[in-house]
């Protein structure tokens, strides 16, 4: 765990957003919308919260992270590139042959990916398995998972949730990136989630809804939740905006999985320079 200031973390988040958009622009393919909505959560985890060692990605006591919404790989790859898990210039090879940055996270090809994901609904179970293994081995590491609000429509999410509660996994923290959009439209229209916090709560999780773009709030909630060794898994539901930080991408369904053209790319970089307005 490192000790950057909130201001430094905000700057870092701006850098990750720029890198993620650059990756998608260069590849002319990928998922910018959800990458931008998850940027502040990813920054808080990778640059503040998690005990990790980029020089030793397989360190057995490291904290685990599973990107259950695997299609927003560009934002995770940005974190890994900035931390030096892979040479930074690899950001220009997203979705290319023999790239560590496959279309979806691939633990065989990219150091720092704890398990391959990409098929929605599945990664959370894996994060639960990692937390169980940690308990079995009396290890102190934590297991973090990032879920999409569309993704939690998958039934397997709730199979994972009931196992996490049964196994008393207070070393597990799930984030839901609640950006309210999925490919076919608003989540509320395609398949309403009802009350996400209440759902997790009724399964037995401790939950909290926060502003997923406030690094202060994310850090504060993590501090609170990681200290509670109460035998209860935690879920942080994050109010987010898909495409956050690039005005023309914000809250627009079409930017789920579309690459910017030259003009859009330049405009996006200009807006992202300097970070989010606070």
């Amino acid at each position: 765990m490192s000790h950057p200031t909130i201001e430094e973390l905000k700057q870092q988040a701006a850098e990750l957003r720029k890198t993620a958009v650059t990756m998608v622009y260069k590849a002319q393919s990928g998922h910018p919308g959800g990458s931008l909505s998850a940027a502040d959560i990813i920054t808080s985890l990778y640059f503040k919260e998690m005990n990790i060692d980029p020089a030793n990605p397989d360190w057995e006591d490291r904290d685990r992270f599973v990107l259950s919404k695997g299609h927003v790989a560009p934002i995770q790859y940005s974190a890994l590139a900035h931390l030096g898990y892979v040479p930074f210039e690899e950001i220009h090879r997203l979705r290319e042959y023999k790239s560590p940055f496959q279309g979806h996270p691939d633990s065989k090809k990219c150091p720092g990916i704890d398990i391959s994901t990409g098929s929605l609904g599945q990664g959370f179970s894996c994060a639960v398995g990692m937390a169980i293994a940690g308990k079995m081995d009396n290890k102190d590491y934590r297991s973090f998972a990032l879920l999409g609000d569309g993704e939690i429509q998958e039934g397997q999410i709730w199979e994972a949730a009931q196992t996490a509660v049964k196994q008393k996994l207070d070393n597990l923290i799930a984030f839901v990136d609640d950006n309210r959009l999925q490919i076919d439209g608003p989540t509320e229209e395609i398949m309403p989630n009802q009350d996400i916090e209440k759902k997790f709560e009724s399964f037995g999780f401790q939950t909290k809804r926060i502003n997923g773009h406030s690094i202060e709030e994310i850090i504060r909630t993590l501090d609170e939740f990681t200290q509670e060794k109460n035998g209860v898994p935690k879920c942080i539901v994050c109010d987010t905006v898909k495409g956050k930080g690039v005005s023309f991408m914000e809250d627009v369904v079409a930017w789920h999985g579309k690459a910017p053209n030259d003009e859009e790319y330049q405009a996006a970089l200009a807006e992202l320079e300097g970070g989010l307005e606070s």
Binding site: E60, S125, C126, G129, A133, D137
Partner: peptide, 10 residues
């Protein structure tokens, strides 16, 4: 899925 996660930890 849980089994796969456990396998990553040995």
């Amino acid at each position: 899925g849980v089994a796969a996660g456990m396998a990553t930890a040995g």
